[in-house]
Structures are given as structure tokens and as C-alpha cells.
Write a protein that binds this DNA or RNA. Structure first.
Lengths: 200, 200, 200, 200
DNA sequence: AATGAATGAGGGTTCATTCAT
DNA sequence: AATGAATGAACCCTCATTCAT
């Protein structure tokens, strides 16, 4: 990687960071390229020096933010040996990651929505599917390990893993609708109880 | 309500029905007013005789479809006396309603996304919050009844109700990403098991 | 053709007429869609009700103007029996058609230029090639008839026909460069003399 | 001219050479400044060290290429004494210069087109008019000499000269439209025959 | 002198909305 | 009441030009 490449990559990341803030707040549809440029503090045209078009910029933004989020989660998880503790931590980290602070998943969903139909606009959304798959795989591994070690019951691993990820995703819902009246912490507590009541 | 009003209401419903089909398939962003008009089989201008603008039409569509879905679910549930059976049925009905066939929730999410930020375009989305609230209330009622009758443990009712709705919502996720490799029926089965392992 | 189609075709022609005026004066590159809209006296968006994009509009304009020009020329020629008189008239009509009044050919050339390279923007320019071919064919027919009737020498018909069309085209040149100092009428006279000195 | 100036002039010529290749292939409209810079193998900004803007660069390119072409033609013609031979050679040289290999005239025409209207972008296109004038003057001189020497008929010299240049220009036409089906050599042969049948 | 990253004016195009019929 | 032709604001994107290094 030449020095120039470093600068370029730095700038891409800077743009992605600001782009994410705007996209998270306004959604894909309502985010104009000029909004992003303004947020980064650069000219509109400069965006096109780093990304071919809006779709690429948004895809790269989502990809990067997911990767960063996943990397950070996985790194922390890898340091934990006990499967139950690992799963418990996983739930909390995902709840955090999906929580309001991030908004990543709200954006994620909007984009998936737009491209789910087949003729959708996002081509590179395979990455999103991969990220999802990576997460379910991670959960599957944790579950298997727990079962092998006799910590968990012998549950259907693939279905349970999918369900766990779905639940974490579903916890997004109140953020859009009912921010005030829901005690997120409590709900998260119930999630853990419920999951382990099932696994034990 | 005069006969004319009835006609008017009929036509609104007809438009809403066709609009929903289009919106479900293409998403909010990619659905043009002309697409809807074409689907209904009327002129573009006529839409504006029945709805003030795109936002109103879409809001009314989502409202109506949610109401219809909820009405049908509640009607069926009211016929069931046993709380456990009621909750079990509720889970299945919601899974169905949120399932791929409907697509209602994918649309719902896309719209909520757009208006979540506060400055968003959808003003009338309070209705969505109400629908959500109505559902959690319904679940709360079922839980309370079950606890009162000694069928369920004494769980935190509000949090558990919220969680249940979130879980049902979260089950949408695979539809957009991983339609093929997920065995939806199995996952739904795990949901039931998990919920009741927690409530018992 | 329904009544609506008539109106539509009328409007297309109206747009084409105004578009031609603008294109002739400013050239393809410097003609903005808004210039054309303004010239027609309609909104910019309306152009797109009748033509898919700028390229289609320009292609249709050139096609139509060429067709009109050719139709008018051919109609007049068909009324003439004598080959020499026919060719003489042909030269004069083409000189007129290609003359400054029209500017059609200047535009024509600019467009062919842009699309000649192969990767060029104009896909429908086959029509231009056809128009050119139609003209050379017409000239070939006149030459053949003249030769058959013994009015002309036995020249190489295809090459001579191509050359005649090229000459007429070449007469455009002074219009762009030297409008003032060239006596077009005289030059046209020389063309005729030269051509017939060759054919006799 | 200081050594520095020589270097500068060298570089200008180098740029012009590459610029011509690109312009000939893509046309004015589709040639970006970056294309030229890349072709020269220098930075985009450097172009502006040698030419004030795109227009100047293109104008200089066309000017230079025309001058080079004319110089080479004139040098060769000056070595010929016999007027008929001179004219014959002139026709062949111009046919070559205007031929596909060069593409100079296709570019020339595109540019003249853009600036013909008066409000056009090219201010310095006077040079093109001068080059054209120089060519007609040259032809006039040849014709006069031929007439004086009794080799040619007493034709209208200015008109005939203009016509000859127009014909040579017109021979460009098939290159853009009908490259395949035209036997250029034969057509060029007919040109000579026709011209001399007129002059004798 | 040379560069190329940054810029932003400007163009083509879309589509929600209007309104004359 | 119903229509769809007309509209133009608004958006994405390009590319000639500038200027800090």
C-alpha cells in the first residue's frame, strides 16, 4: 500500500463515517449526496472521486459499519471461554450494536427492503446477507460448543441461531415507534432469561 | 353515511387494495403514483380525488392493511378462552401476518425508517405506533390473564409483551436476506418452545 | 390511428420543428433540453412525454427533417422525365437543401462525427446512413437511365453517384467559414457545368 | 527564442500531437481534458500550464495539424512545374489528407459546426477560415497558371477553386456513414476525370 | 514546473402534483 | 367525477478548471 493509498483509504473512511451519520438520521431515500458532502465538509463532486455513485457510497458505508461492528463484537467474544457467558455477552453486545446509538440496522433494513424484490437497486447487498450469515454462524458455533460441553440442552442449532439473531434484530422495533414507553434494559433482561430458560 | 359516501369509501378501499400490492412488491421508494393508478386501473389524477398526496395514500394503505390484519387476528383470538392456547395461536397468527405472503411489515419498516428521525415525511405514522401499542396491549392482556389463572409464571408483563412483539417482528429478517436456507416452520416452532419454556 | 394518436403525432412534429431550429443554430452539444422546451413553448418535462431522452429527440428531429427534405425532393424529381433535366434539378434541389437555410447537414455531420467512432452515442444513426444510401441510389438510378437513353456517357455509375452526393455535401463548407466572399450561385453553376462536362 | 522557450514549444507540440490523436478518435465533445492528459502522459493540471483552456488547446491542435498538413502539401507541390500535374497531385494529396487516416477534417467540421452560429464557443476559428482561404488561394494560383499557360480552359477561377476544395471536403462524407461499400480509390479517380474534363 | 485532489456550475432526467377538459 | 398531459422543482452526476503542495 503506497502512501497515497493510505490517504485515499483514510478519506474514504472519513466520508463513510459522516455518510453513516446522515444516512442513519435521514434514511437512504431522504439523504442527498449534497447532504453527505456537507456533512463531510467537502464538495459534492469530491464524493465521486471516492465512490462511483450513491449506491456504491451507501453500500460501502453499510458494509464498513457492519464490519467494524462485527469485528469489535467478535474480538470481545473471542476472549471469552465459557459458552454461556459468551452467549450472554453476545446478546448484550448485539443489543447495544442494534440499539438506538447505532441505527445501523434501521438503515440496513431500509436498503434490504429496497433490494429484496429482485429488481432492487442494490447489487452489492450480498454483503449484507453474508454479514447476517456470519452472525448466525457465530451463534451456531456458540450453541454447539455449549451443547458439546453439556452446558446447553440439545436444541436445534440452526433454527435457534437464526431465531436469536432475529430476536436481536426485532428489538430494533420500539426505537422507531415507542422510544419513550419501553424500558429497553428490562426487555433485554427478559431476552436473556427467556433464551437461557430455553437452553437449560 | 349517504350512498355517495359509501361509494367513495368503496373506491378508497379498492385503491388501497391495489396500492398495497404494489407497495409490498416494490417498496415505498420505488412505487410511483402512476404504478398505483395503473394497478387500480384508473387515471393518475383520480388518486388525488381520494387522497391528498402520496404520503396520505400510503399511510392510509398501511393503516388499513394493519387494521384488517389486526381485526382478523383479534376476532379469532377472542374466540379462544384458554390463555396458553390464546398465546400460542397469537404467535402463529402473527408469524403468518408478518410472513412473506404479507410483506406488510417490510413496507411498514421502510416507512417507519423514513419517518423515525422526527423530521421524517410521515406525520400520520402515529397510527403505526398505535397499532404497535394495541398489539403489545393485547399481548399484555393475554399474559396477565394467564398469570392470574396461574397458567404462566409471574413475569414482567410489559417487558415480556414488548419482547414477544419484537420477536415476531424480528422473524421478518430472513425473508429479505436468506429466504432459501432458513426453515421458517422450524424457527417458528422454536419460538413457541422458547416462549413457553420461559412462561412456565 | 385514434384521434389521440393524431394529437400526439402533431405535438411530436411541433417539438421536432422547434428542436430543429435550435439544433441548427446551436449544434448538438450546445443545445440544452431546456433550450428546446423554451423554443417549443412548453415545460422541460413535457419533452420527455414525447421522447425518451435527448438522443431520441435529436435523432427523431434529424430523421424527420431529412425525410421531409427527401420526400419533397423526390416528389419534384419524379415529375421530370428527361434524365439530364432530372439530374440538373437534383443538383439544384440538393444545393438548396444543404444550403444555409437548412443547416440540416451541418447538424447531421456533427452527429455522425460523434457516433462514427463506434462507441459513439447515437445508436439510431443507421437512419442517416440509410438516408445517404437512398440518395446515392436515387442518383444511380438517374445516371443509369441517362446512360441507357444514351444521354450520358458510360461512366462508373456507383462511384459517380457517390461523388455527386459528396460534392453536394462538400458545398456546405463555405457556409461555416467564408459566408461572405463566396458566390454560392456561381459555384453551383460551375458544379453543373463540371458534372455535365463529365457525363457528356 | 531562449532555450527555455524551445523546451516550452517542444512540449506544446508534444501535447498537441497526443491531443490530436484523441480528438480525431473521439471527437471534440467526447474528449475530456483528462483523456488528453493521459494520452500525453502528464498531469491534467499541466495542460493548463501550456494552454489557457480546452478551447485554446483544441484550437491550437487543429491549427497546428492543419498547418503541418498544408506545409507538407505545399512543399511537395512547389516542386512541380506543370500546372496539370500540379493540380492532379493536389487532388491526390488532399484526398489523402482528408482521408480516414487523418480524421482531421471530421474534427474540423465538428468544431466549425459548434462555432458557426456566431455565438459559438470558438473564437479563434478565424484560423480555420484562413487555412481554408489559403487552400483556395493555392488552387486559384494553380488554375490561373494553367489558364495562362493555355493548359486549362478559361473557367471562373474563384468559383472553380472554391468548388475543388469543397469537393475534396465532401469526400469525407462516406467515411462516417458507409465506410464499407464505397470504393474510395475509384471515387478519387472519378474526381480527377471530372475535374479535368471540365478544365480541358 | 508539475501535479491531481477538490470543486461546483450546469445538464439530463424523474415524478409528485395540478388543472383544463 | 375522472382524466392524463403538462409542469418544474429537485436530484444525481460530469468535467473543465483551480490551487495547494
Amino acid at each position: 500500500m503506497t502512501p497515497k493509498m493510505v490517504d485515499r483509504e483514510q478519506k474514504r473512511l472519513q466520508i463513510i463515517g459522516s455518510a453513516f451519520n446522515v444516512l442513519r438520521d435521514k434514511g437512504y431515500m431522504d439523504t442527498k449526496m449534497s447532504d453527505i458532502a456537507e456533512a463531510v465538509g467537502i464538495g459534492k463532486g469530491t464524493l465521486y472521486e471516492y465512490f462511483a455513485n450513491k449506491e456504491e457510497l451507501v453500500a460501502a458505508t453499510v458494509e464498513t459499519m457492519i464490519r467494524l461492528s462485527q469485528d469489535s463484537i467478535y474480538r470481545e467474544l473471542d476472549a471469552i471461554a465459557d459458552p454461556e457467558e459468551k452467549l450472554r455477552r453476545f446478546i448484550r453486545l448485539l443489543a447495544e450494536a442494534f440499539g438506538e446509538e447505532s441505527g445501523l440496522f434501521r438503515l440496513f433494513i431500509e436498503i434490504v427492503r429496497g433490494s429484496g424484490g429482485g429488481g432492487g437497486r442494490f447489487e452489492r447487498m450480498d454483503y449484507l446477507a453474508e454479514a447476517y450469515k456470519r452472525t448466525t454462524n457465530k451463534v451456531e458455533a456458540i450453541l454447539k460448543e455449549g451443547i458439546d460441553k453439556g452446558v446447553f440442552r440439545k436444541v436445534d442449532v440452526p433454527s435457534t441461531a437464526v431465531l436469536l439473531v432475529c430476536i436481536m434484530d426485532g428489538l430494533q422495533l420500539p426505537y422507531g415507534l415507542d422510544r419513550k414507553s419501553v424500558d429497553v434494559k428490562k426487555v433485554n433482561g427478559v431476552v436473556e432469561e427467556m433464551v437461557f430458560s430455553y437452553l437449560k
